[in-house]
Amino acid sequence: MTNNARDAILQRLQNSQPSFDNSDKSVSVEAPEWPIKERIEQFKSILESVRAEVLLAHPDHWTDTLKSLAKKKQLNNLLFAKKGPLGKTIEDAWDVNEQPSLVNNERPISEWKESLFFHIDAAVTSSRAAIAETGSLVLWPTEHEPRSWSLVPPVHFVVLDADKLYNTFAEVVEHEQWQQGMPTNALLISGPSKSADIEQTLAYGVHGPTDLIVIVLT
């Protein structure tokens, strides 16, 4: 049945080739190009306007920032990827009994879903790039830093290298040539989870993280 449906639909579309103007003459949509300092400011101010926290840190000392925030938020545990790009730095910076305790779990999520869903307070992940115009983080989750890490725990820390801060989404796609090969899942994250479904009143932390904290390495 499905194949018949496919052929019938495609046939109908092909038979009624529309004769409207479909010229693809390119219109240049003007895109902002900010110097890096302004890019960071723009990124920060947009993200902060949707109640995300953005902190600038030195590449050598960012774990201090992470630690102090984690303590301030009174987190019991922090999920991190030992084999991920941040793994070693985090591990080295943490004392054995330091709070929050570090959690590393390399098994498929299905095997420890309950703990991820109901017991993990926070996760920290890297990010591939970011976008100043919209205050967006670009994540391509990996086997070390899976998709649900940036989604399920109530608090999400993201570490961003300021060099990876682009002006616009279009610029990222073009510069990184995304069409050459897309990952399983590519994400733009632009704040903590939110909803305005009740009386147009913003509420944060609907299904995803309530807190999004970005540490920008400059």
């Binding site: 733009l188 994250i189 995803g208």
Partner: peptide
């Protein structure tokens, strides 16, 4: 907040999806 681009099911080695 989220722009979610899905291109394939879970690949070998990936832990979720």
């Amino acid at each position: 907040t989220y722009f979610n681009m899905i291109t394939s099911p879970r690949k070998q080695g990936e832990k979720d999806g």
